[in-house]
């Protein structure tokens, strides 16, 4: 007390006066970044198989892509891949989820742009990819199979777009249609299966759909009971 603390404080600042400064000279000297530093999200078009895991894992709808079903190939053809960077939280979930390692963060952290449109990155299909494919890959796939696959995909799209209309062909009660469409929205597998069956065997599809609905109803009933208890 009695000023000792004041003098001690003055001593500390004086000591620091002669110490080396720690300021980083940023635009002149770039900072040293850790290897894992997450700057800008980069996408490698060639590796992508358009599986959609990244899109599903993203919490903030940053990622989206467009695909096309080529006639002579079973595989989906990636047309474009969009990273709407303004919503990115740099959480790394997409990178961790990607099975083909085609997403990665680089060390570029200067992300500001003059207009909002520039933040969005759209990767278009490079032209040389198509040329290569046409040269190497002869149409060896079964035409029938690819056609079917295309039909399934179309059906799936239709299902997602307007489930009521298609499901009404199989299920009678409106309540059931609602349940099934909800189920499909939350679970892609269900939707895929129903779409596949709809193309191949309509009767079987109706049966399976009915099965799904009853199972879901049971689940809900149980959940309600559990809640009440």
């Amino acid at each position: 007390m009695n000023g000792q603390g004041l003098i001690k404080g003055l001593g500390i600042t004086l000591k620091h006066f002669f110490q080396k400064e720690i300021t980083e000279q940023y635009p002149d000297v770039m900072p040293e970044l850790a290897t894992r530093f997450r700057g800008c999200l980069q996408f490698e078009f060639e590796k992508c198989i358009a599986c959609g895991i990244c899109v599903n894992s993203c919490p903030n709808n940053v990622l989206s892509f467009e695909t096309e079903k080529s006639e002579n190939s079973k595989k989906k053809k990636l047309l474009s891949y969009t990273i709407d960077f303004q919503y990115c939280m740099f959480c790394n979930l997409c990178v961790e989820g990607c099975p083909k390692d085609c997403l990665h963060f680089d060390h570029d952290f200067e992300l500001s742009t003059f207009s909002r449109d520039d933040i969005k990155r759209v990767y278009l299909r490079p032209a040389e990819m198509d040329e290569e494919k046409e040269a190497d890959a002869a149409p060896v796939q079964d035409e029938q199979e690819s056609k079917e696959q295309k039909q399934i995909d179309a059906m799936l799209k239709a299902l997602q777009k307007n489930p009521q209309k298609i499901l009404a062909k199989m299920l009678e009660q409106e309540e059931d249609i609602g349940i099934l469409s909800e189920l499909m929205q939350s679970n892609e597998k269900t939707a895929g299966k129903i779409a596949e069956l709809l193309v191949k065997d309509k009767e079987k599809a109706a049966k399976v759909a009915a099965g799904f609905v009853t199972k879901e109803k049971k689940n809900r009933l149980q959940a309600e009971k559990g809640g009440e208890e």
Binding site: H16, F17, Q19, E21, I22, T23, Q25
Partner: peptide, 10 residues
């Protein structure tokens, strides 16, 4: 400048 030096800045 002086305040910066006290605070280990430039």
């Amino acid at each position: 400048k002086v305040s910066a030096f006290f605070q280990e800045r430039l």
